[in-house]
Design a protein around this nucleic acid. Structure first.
Lengths: 343, 343
DNA sequence: CAGAATAATGTAAACGTTTACATTATTTAT
DNA sequence: ATAAATAATGTAAACGTTTACATTATTCTG
């Protein structure tokens, strides 16, 4: 039979309020009484029912995590970071992702109104109006994981896309490349837009004229990298280096280069962005930007819990941009020892 | 101000019990009354508080998912399958994973006793005694995702490791290879043990003597594949084909082969198990066994919900083994068109 | 029309915890 | 010793829903 607080109180010869105070560590309880209660609770394997506690306190110690999809290691790393930090702070993770049967607006609405979660981490690469409305109206703390920065009353976290793209483009420039192309991410995706900005900024700061023919639209898939590179190399004016706005597209470029009989980096230097695991194992190892995804997850959780606990103002405007790191492989032209290659 | 059931009842001029009956669709309610209540609830944006409902019904419509780790695409695919099916059936996912700060026994105990979840999906590659005790004593339905099969009162799901290993070993035999090696998975990991069994069974059924020197222990990492292959090829007696018990180890074999100046499949045929995404992009494409991980997740959820709803006996013994598929690449010696390669 | 059966609704309590405020016990100060 | 202050405990209600069983309303049958 399930033990409840009344059983503990009866056996300890005190009221249920005293049991509650003893177990929760606030309110006055004589130390002697408290020890007695703790001992009995331990003997009877009693822990407070979190559902009842949730109804009483209006807090569930649960965080809602809303993701746009669950398709690659990025999301694994993010969830991993979130899970670790949440656990560390005594929170549970209610996970939800968009798929063919559910969209992100419905899920967001539900999490924000249902009482199941104390706060929400929302990742939506494209922030539609209806979503922004929801976020603005929410009674529950929310942390966004995207480019939205310095908007009144919004807390958001992201990686420094612009800084990373700048760094890797600068690296190509430092190699002496002048004709540098970019295969972009999807239109409307703000990470992609920031990477484009970083690319342009690096060219500008190095007094390299931007050639619009060297900006090819992509969609973060291998295929768009493959076809984008094909397009670049069927143009009259050919680049000497190409920056793929993510590593998957860089893989597509590797494919296309092989098909065309081009050598990397001798004929064409290639760099990517996000340092997926695969990038370690291709030849030459891809030069790319490492992004701290787990840390992104854990920092977002930390701030969200601060808001829930009112340790920071939930209405405050806050933004964090996590810095990225340049990972040197051989694909840009650097001479590196390469042990970890497949072929 | 948060609307509650009393507001709806007052405005509809009925009791809260009638509101509850109307919204939950059971118990008698006059259709006219029901429509009126639904209309008002909709106008006031009322939905029942799930926490209060949970306390009353002792059901939260939440499933606890306990995973041993969150490190690769296997877990992403599994969570994806779980998430989709749970959503389809109106359930939420409370996700928890082991990490440096938490072990699987604690988490299992907590999920089974705390009332936060209606049932649990537990994946533990090594079923320790204390875990088996917990599972046996649990008041909540549990589905295991591992090799435990046909144990009294336990429901479990897994992929057909033995069948897949048999099939891929048979494929090597069909190529005419007689000297076939295996790099195993970790000791005590039952998936690994089943793959070893399938390997042995294929040899036996083809009257090929098992050479113990051709069984090399591995741990599912690239490194153990690399060093395992090195060991195989420093032996006097060398194999003509090697089956890596997972694709990551197969990648390690590719590395080692390159280092040694061996060609795949000309000098040594290589096959793997689990068809990770990376296996599509190496040259030659790895011949491997495809495993339906998303389906594993969704079938486990489906059965768990059946147990929760008492549509099946929660004390019944049940096991499902999901069949695998042979994916032909060039690494075994088959001639295949290979477009999707990196180099 | 009256009684029986069925449909519909309401009342009260349950679920298990937390906590504001009232009450009691103990300690301190004069 | 008495009064005031502080510590400790208890009572009652709250949180928001569900549902067993009682009550009332409506319909059916003889």
């Amino acid at each position: 039979m399930k033990v409840n607080i009344n059983d503990i109180a009866r056996q300890a010869g005190v009221s249920i309020a005293t049991v509650s105070r003893a177990l929760n560590g606030h309110g006055l309880v004589k130390e002697e009484t408290r020890q007695k209660i703790l001992k009995i609770a331990h003997e009877l394997n009693y822990t407070p029912n979190p559902i009842a506690r949730g109804l009483s306190t209006q807090k569930t110690e649960t965080l809602g995590i809303i993701l746009p999809e669950l398709v690659d290691e990025f999301f694994m790393d993010l969830i991993h970071g979130i899970d670790e930090e949440a656990y560390r702070q005594g929170y549970y993770i209610l996970l939800s992702s968009s798929h063919s049967q559910r969209n992100i607006v419905e899920t967001s609405l539900e999490f924000m109104t249902s009482g199941r979660v104390d706060g929400v981490i929302l990742m939506a690469p494209k922030m539609r109006h209806e979503l922004m409305d929801l976020v603005a109206k929410s009674k529950r703390p929310i942390v966004l994981l995207n480019c939205i920065a310095n908007i009144k009353g919004i807390a958001s976290f992201n990686i420094d896309n612009l800084g990373g793209a700048f760094a890797i483009t600068q690296h190509l420039v430092d190699h002496g490349y002048k004709k540098i192309a970019l295969i972009t991410g999807p239109e409307g995706n703000c990470d992609a837009e920031e990477r484009l900005k970083g690319f342009k900024k690096a060219l500008e700061q190095n007094n390299i004229a931007l050639n619009e023919d060297f900006i090819i639209p992509g969609d973060f898939t291998i295929k768009s990298g493959y076809y984008g590179f094909n397009r670049l190399f069927t143009q009259r004016n050919k680049p000497e280096a190409v920056f793929a706005a993510n590593d998957m597209m860089a893989l597509g470029i590797y494919q296309a280069a092989k098909t065309m009989g081009l050598k990397i980096p001798e004929d064409i230097a290639v760099v990517g962005f996000d340092d997926i695991r695969l990038s370690h194992y291709i030849h030459p190892r891809l030069t790319t930007i490492h992004v701290p995804i787990q840390e992104l997850g854990s920092r977002a959780v930390r701030y969200l819990i601060k808001m829930i606990r009112q340790e920071v103002d939930p209405q405050a405007t806050y933004h964090e941009k996590l810095s990225t790191g340049l990972i040197i492989g051989g694909s840009c032209g650097c001479q590196v020892a390469q042990l970890n290659t497949i072929i």
